[in-house]
Design a binder for these strands. Structure first.
Lengths: 133, 133
DNA sequence: ATTATATTGACAAATATTGTCAATTGATTT
DNA sequence: AAATCAATTGACAATATTTGTCAATATAAT
């Protein structure tokens, strides 16, 4: 694993623990709000910076959503995400039979490929129900 | 294909043609700049609104990048994208053996899944070279 | 030509992210 | 334990990105 984090700081711990506590793939803003409850002096820049570092180090995972804000997840077991087009929330889903797609790349035009992001999208149960009204 | 576009407007045509001309998966800002050259009076809101509509109708595709701005692509043949972590540009790449991953979803928690986004990431040739200096 | 309404332009406003820099703090050395 | 050095922080400004408002306009149907 890459070694990007050079010093252990209380703020970095706070950020990591916040993401783990907020089990719902939080945005930086949600992480900041969560931390602010107990540590109001932690600045938003620090949250962004530590999220970046934790993603680079591999402790967290960036979940790309089409045109939305950054979402992060703490890496547990292998699972996938669904982005609800209506409410914008992210949900964990299970998918079998998805291998390591990096190996499927045939022509990369000289690009060095290190990661592969997969995100499903659709509508969540709540928004399905709301649609029928 | 869904019918979201209710009226054909010159602005909508401009947006679609801009994305097609700018072959590099442009952001809304880049589309706006491109159109402004020939039609300075088209507002940025209009660009965003039409990009949304064109994505909903299926004429364009949203490319999710981890934590970045929206990128769109006009759907041609089936291909994939790589996001360069260094410069932020998007590149087309070819990948064989990737089926329709929607069918691999085993547990969706009641979510209705309609789309699947796949984005690779890594470093592009230019940034690889720059790294070695 | 008239009508109804989707769409636009011009902004403002909101949201999201990054940059600056002196002050602080963590790890290392003495 | 004290001194040192540099990574990190907090406070805030600045930038970037996206959305909202509303009167004016343009499109498609009658």
């Amino acid at each position: 694993m890459k070694q990007i984090i050079q010093r252990n700081t209380v703020q970095c711990d706070l950020v990591l623990n916040a993401v783990r506590s907020l089990c719902n793939h939080p945005t930086p803003e949600q992480v900041y709000s969560y931390i602010a409850k107990s540590h109001p002096s932690v600045s938003k820049s620090t949250v962004y910076r530590n999220l970046d570092k934790l993603c680079e180090s591999g402790a967290l995972l960036r979940i790309p959503v089409p045109g939305g804000a950054l979402h992060v997840d703490h890496t547990l077991t292998s699972h996938y995400h669904m982005y609800c087009k209506v409410c914008g929330n992210l949900y964990d889903i299970e998918a079998a039979g998805i291998g390591d797609l990096k190996n499927e790349v045939t022509v990369s035009n000289g690009c060095e490929i290190t990661d592969c992001y997969i995100v499903f999208s659709g509508t969540c149960p709540e928004c399905n129900k709301a649609d029928k009204n």
